[in-house]
């Protein structure tokens, strides 16, 4: 039976790459984004859903339950970034970052877990960032939203362990995607210099850690955050 993976934020960047990777492995991939799909594949199914919209997420997971009966894996990949001095950060921007990064992760985790509880199996991977342990200036709101995701990951891991659901988080370094396109080059270089291994993250680096979390043999790994690039 084909494994079913739900990946949020699949229109571009890492979400799109991961979708294509898991399609290549024979998975059924269900993706979502606020806009139209950008992947054409017989085993790819798309929902136009904003992860921060509760009704939309509830309706999406309900429809998946009716059509596919299960979700084996969830990658809470959808995210937005905002880099600015906190004095220059409008409240609306801060809310928008938390809406997608934290509330979107929370809503998808909550609704998908209800289905995973019934099937007594599930693997959930949330997304943090190395900006959390590095405590970077200019990233107060972004890294605060991701730190909230880390705490959510650790507590959800405890609350859902009895249902054989594991919940972990990956903390990527900067990867060359749209997410960092507006960050000044010197800021990115400063960040890379603080990593043990001073280079951009590659898609394969993320894939490696996510595959580890999803692996059937990783059933004793939960509530963990793995940072890339030697950051801790």
């Amino acid at each position: 039976m084909s494994r079913i993976i739900l990946i949020t934020g699949t229109r571009k960047g890492i979400g799109k790459e991961l979708s294509e990777y898991y399609l290549g492995k024979g998975f059924t991939v269900i993706g979502c984004s606020r806009q139209e799909k950008s992947i054409e594949h017989p085993n790819y199914h798309h929902y136009n859903t904003d992860v921060s919209d509760e009704k939309g997420v509830v309706a999406m997971v309900s429809d998946i339950r009716k059509k596919f009966k299960r979700i084996d894996y969830l990658l809470n990949n959808a995210g937005v970034a905002s880099m600015n001095h906190l004095i220059l950060t409008p409240l609306e921007t801060a809310r928008r970052v938390f809406d997608t990064n934290f509330f979107g992760t929370f809503l998808c985790l909550r609704e998908v877990s209800k289905l995973m509880m019934k099937q007594k199996f599930g693997r959930i991977v949330n997304y943090s960032t190395v900006a959390v342990p590095l405590v970077l200036e200019g990233e107060a709101i972004y890294s605060a939203s991701k730190m909230a995701v880390e705490q959510l990951t650790k507590i959800a891991a405890k609350e859902l362990a009895d249902f054989n659901i594991t919940i972990n988080a990956i903390g990527p370094t900067p990867v060359k995607t749209d997410l960092i396109k507006n960050v000044p080059e010197n800021k990115i270089q400063d960040l890379l210099n603080r990593q043990a291994i001073k280079r951009f993250g590659e898609f394969d680096d993320l894939k490696n850690v996510i595959d580890f979390f999803l692996d059937d043999k990783s059933d004793f790994i939960t509530g963990q955050v793995i940072y890339l690039g030697g950051v801790n």
């Binding site: 339950r65 009716k66 877990s113 289905l115 509880m117 019934k118």
Partner: peptide, 24 residues
């Protein structure tokens, strides 16, 4: 509490099947 959350998750799914309405 574990039993209650299991009941709530199952009830939401059955309500959706039976009444075609998604509720939290």
């Amino acid at each position: 509490s574990l039993g209650l959350v299991t009941l709530i998750a199952e009830l939401e799914a059955r309500i959706s099947e039976e009444f075609d309405k998604d509720v939290v």
